[in-house]
């Protein structure tokens, strides 16, 4: 028993804690940027003129239609081989991961946002226009604040999912939680202990995110917008 504690306290926890910070450094910007991108793309898919809408549809089908691993490989391994003039983009593992996760989760978020936008009664849009609001003002001040509340459960789901698929960053050499976990496991051959601990770290992250999302949902709750009780 003492040996176990020793192993966890001296080897597993310190290493995983380090990886935890790197994971967080990937997850937080990806979640925020992904959500922002999703709101933008979702709105454009509903309200933009046809050519812009089409462009956004292409983006979504591309990023929902290909495996995330392949996308990450592309950003990290393939992008440096593309040369436009003198421009050659080489991304660090961290940047490649954030870029890949943002673009992927943005595509999924946009779907939740689009659904929520379509659920807003058209009469309110007419009323806003009758008051002299432009289309952009209407979307910004009338439709989106309501749509965001409706999309929150779905978007929250996507963020939870992002926390877990952030583990894929390890295959483009980023030493985040999973990457570090695999290294310790390889070095010590104590697969059970390491991977159980690793799983618990993710469970902890997801639990914290769930609590945070519930808090946000409660803070934004308005009469007439409750999803739970109806």
């Amino acid at each position: 028993m003492n040996d176990y504690w020793h192993f966890f306290l001296n080897d597993v926890f310190p290493a995983l804690n380090q990886g935890l910070w790197i994971s967080i450094a990937v997850i937080v910007p990806s979640a925020l940027l992904g959500l922002a991108l999703g709101v933008l793309v979702g709105s454009l898919r509903v309200y933009a003129p046809a050519p812009v809408r089409l462009l956004n549809e292409v983006y979504v089908s591309l990023f929902r239609g290909t495996p995330l691993v392949v996308q990450l490989f592309f950003w990290y391994f393939a992008l440096p081989h593309l040369q436009i003039g003198d421009l050659r983009i080489v991304l660090s593992p961290m940047s490649a991961a954030i870029l890949g996760f943002t673009l992927c989760s943005g595509a999924y978020h946009s779907e939740y946002i689009r659904g929520a936008l379509l659920s807003i009664r058209h009469g309110q849009i007419k009323a806003a226009q009758a008051l002299g609001m432009s289309k952009t003002q209407t979307v910004l001040w009338v439709v989106l604040p309501q749509a965001m509340r409706r999309a929150l459960p779905g978007c929250g789901n996507e963020i939870i999912y992002l926390i877990k698929y952030s583990s894929l960053a390890s295959i483009i050499t980023l030493n985040e939680l999973t990457g570090i976990g695999r290294t310790i496991a390889k070095q010590t051959w104590r697969n059970i202990e390491v991977f159980v601990a690793l799983g618990l770290y993710y469970l902890l992250l997801v639990t914290l995110a769930t609590l945070l999302l519930q808090y946000i949902e409660r803070r934004l709750a308005l009469p007439g917008f409750s999803h739970a009780r109806r």
Partner: peptide, 27 residues
């Protein structure tokens, strides 16, 4: 040109005050 609709079309996420205020501020 003010418009009153049959089914009111209030902005559901705003209070009565917010409904009256928003176009004054934004428009």
């Amino acid at each position: 040109v003010g418009m009153i609709f049959q089914d009111f079309n209030l902005f559901d996420h705003l209070t009565a005050l917010g409904n009256v205020q928003i176009a004054l501020i934004k428009v």
